[in-house]
């Protein structure tokens, strides 16, 4: 409709068409990535359902009450929440074309995310060293699968963020890097969203 009303001259029609196309590309990329995120949600839902079914199958091993500590889970939660918010601040600074600030916020977000992964790896290695690895019981298999899959997503996100920081410091804020930043922001906020359910179902309900 709008293309037809602007099409007074052939040139204007082509320009409007080009504009509509490129405009479409950006929001299509975001929609496509959103569909991926929603299918990832279904992956996590299957892992949550598995955990819910198996979390009482201890096979003589330790229960969640004996293994998990709330202060550590709270620290991990805060690291991820602050990382998510500083990624949001990077996006807000990119609206004002302040590239140095965007990179600064992303670096902060990266450090917080890396600390989260480090804490999780520490938790995993101490569990394994105490003889409570994923082979100990069905409960621990499903625990490592669920929390490990989330940790793997965060690690991939950290790699992605490092690439993004490098691109931003070379080419600055362009249409492409801004689009990548928006898509990455969706991924990072989504991982924080999944973590809400992990700390609630695994840690809080496991200890209380």
């Amino acid at each position: 409709m709008s293309v037809a009303s602007h099409a007074d001259t052939p040139l204007a029609a082509t320009a409007a068409h080009d504009h509509a196309d490129s405009h479409e590309d950006g929001s299509l990329t975001i929609l496509g990535f959103w569909i991926y995120l929603m299918s990832d949600c279904i992956l996590f839902a299957t892992l949550f359902a598995t955990y819910a079914v198996l979390h009482n199958e201890l096979f003589g091993g330790p229960s969640s009450r004996e293994l998990f500590s709330l202060p550590e889970a709270f620290a991990e939660t805060m690291l991820l929440l602050f990382s998510s918010v500083s990624c949001g601040f990077a996006l807000l600074s990119s609206l004002k074309q302040k590239n140095a600030r965007v990179i600064g916020w992303l670096c902060l977000s990266f450090l917080l995310g890396a600390s989260f992964v480090a804490m999780e790896l520490h938790e995993f290695t101490s569990l394994v060293q105490e003889g409570n690895s994923w082979t100990r019981s069905a409960f621990l298999s499903s625990f490592f699968t669920l929390v490990g899959t989330h940790g793997l997503h965060v690690s991939v996100g950290l790699f992605w963020m490092a690439v993004l920081i490098a691109q931003l410091s070379i080419v600055g804020i362009t249409a492409e890097t801004f689009r990548r930043l928006v898509v990455f922001g969706l991924f990072w906020h989504f991982l924080d969203l999944v973590w809400i359910f992990i700390f609630t179902f695994v840690y809080l309900m496991g200890v209380a």
Partner: peptide, 26 residues
């Protein structure tokens, strides 16, 4: 510059504000 127009256009489409992030975080 066509590229800049796309950037401005896509920045308009993005809905984040400082207020929203503040409320969301708190």
């Amino acid at each position: 510059m066509g590229n800049d127009d796309i950037l401005i256009e896509s920045q308009k489409e993005w809905h984040g504000t400082l207020k929203a992030y503040g409320i969301g975080f708190l």
